[in-house]
Simulated scan of single mutants.
Amino acid sequence: MSQKHVTTTLTLERLWQFSLQYYSVREVKEACLSLQNNFHGNVNLLLLLKWLDEEKLTFAEHDWPTVSDCLSSSETLLHSYRELRRKLKLSVPETLYREALQFELQLEKQQQSDLVHCIANLSLATTDTPALAARYCRHLGAEHLGRIFSKPIEPFSSKS
């Protein structure tokens, strides 16, 4: 890892668009849902880490708690809302359920905003061996999913 501080081009809109495109890949979506549902992982954090990996950027070991802490304000709300939406799925009209999904997406975007703000306050460095996403999966006990997120991103096409 280079010790040189680098400036990132990360914005909320760039992370959001990256996330929508990357998550649209079936294998990635399935792995993200498994990470969330089976290993209690945070998909927005994973997507941020994957973006950093793709940009060949990393942060210092001692910054992991800072990154995790920036999720604390939104994670409880998002988790509670997600559970409520799942319970409502079978008892509300489809249009209302879709509105609930849209609101959940707004909460997801707010969480990504929190992550972008957090990363902007860290010292980032370049790396030749990006491994943040895989490391996060390993930390959660989901090494097999880390292999999926370690694959280089293929150019996105309109067929995704």
Rank of each mutant, 00 (worst) to 15 (best):
M1P: 08
S2C: 01
Q3H: 11
Q3S: 14
H5W: 00
V6I: 13
L12Y: 08
L15G: 03
L15S: 04
Q17T: 11
Q17E: 15
S19Y: 02
Y22D: 10
Y22M: 06
R26K: 15
R26P: 12
E27Y: 00
V28P: 11
V28Q: 09
V28G: 07
K29M: 10
E30W: 07
E30F: 06
E30S: 08
S34V: 09
N38K: 14
N38L: 13
N38D: 15
F39K: 05
F39P: 04
G41E: 09
G41Q: 05
V43F: 03
N44F: 06
L45E: 11
L45V: 04
L45I: 04
L46V: 03
L47H: 04
L48P: 05
L48Q: 02
L48V: 03
L48N: 03
L49A: 04
W51N: 08
W51R: 09
L52I: 01
L52H: 03
D53K: 02
E54T: 06
K56Q: 11
L57S: 01
F59L: 04
F59D: 01
F59H: 02
E61D: 14
H62P: 10
P65Y: 04
T66C: 07
T66W: 01
D69F: 03
D69K: 08
C70F: 00
S72T: 13
S74V: 06
T76V: 13
L77F: 07
L77C: 01
L78Q: 12
L78H: 09
L78R: 15
H79M: 10
S80T: 03
Y81K: 08
L84G: 06
R85P: 05
K87A: 12
K87R: 15
K87I: 00
K89S: 09
K89D: 02
L90N: 13
L90K: 15
L90W: 00
V92N: 07
P93D: 15
P93R: 10
P93K: 10
L96A: 12
Y97K: 09
E99N: 12
E99L: 11
A100Q: 10
E104C: 04
E108P: 04
Q110E: 13
Q111T: 02
Q111M: 08
Q112E: 14
S113Y: 05
S113D: 12
S113W: 07
L115F: 02
V116G: 08
H117F: 09
C118R: 03
C118M: 02
C118V: 02
A120S: 15
N121Y: 01
S123P: 00
S123D: 12
L124H: 06
L124R: 02
L124C: 06
A125Q: 14
T126W: 05
T127Q: 01
T127P: 06
D128C: 01
D128W: 01
T129E: 11
T129G: 03
L132N: 07
A134L: 07
C137W: 09
C137Q: 10
R138A: 13
R138I: 00
L140K: 15
L140P: 12
G141A: 05
A142E: 09
A142N: 08
H144Q: 14
H144E: 13
L145T: 08
G146S: 03
R147M: 13
I148W: 10
I148D: 10
F149T: 08
S150T: 05
K151A: 15
P152A: 05
P152F: 03
I153P: 01
I153V: 15
E154S: 14
E154R: 14
F156W: 09
S157M: 07
S158E: 15
S160L: 13
S160D: 14
